[in-house]
Nucleic acid binder design. Sequence first.
DNA 1: TAATTGACTTCGC
DNA 2: GGCGAAGCCAATT
Length: 105
Amino acid sequence: VGTPDSFSRRVLSVVRRIPPGRVATYGDVARLAGRPRAFRAVGNIMRDCSRPEVPCHRVVAAGGRIGGYGGSEGLKRSLLAAEGVSVVARRVRGFDLVRWRPESK
DNA sequence: TAATTGACTTCGC
DNA sequence: GGCGAAGCCAATT
């Protein structure tokens, strides 16, 4: 992370806390990071995602849509599928069930 | 410092 | 279901 800003670090921190088999939306991550309306900036930070310890692939768009992944959505789908998250037609199946919640740990 | 850029979201057609 | 426009935020140029 070339720019150790508070926000970016918080975002990465949140994403890192997402357990396997669960996913979070950009909005959720932004909210947990303290900026509920910064989902766009979150995406910006994720794009940089040069950290193996940060499961950026577990961050999906609202409504259970896959979103993007450095141009390879297919890879993201594979990674999610490998963790037990079924993706159909660019959408997460049982999105409400796999969506990560801080309290659900 | 100002302008531009997105892995976004939501609403309308 | 797909396409477009407006709104919001941080990072980058």
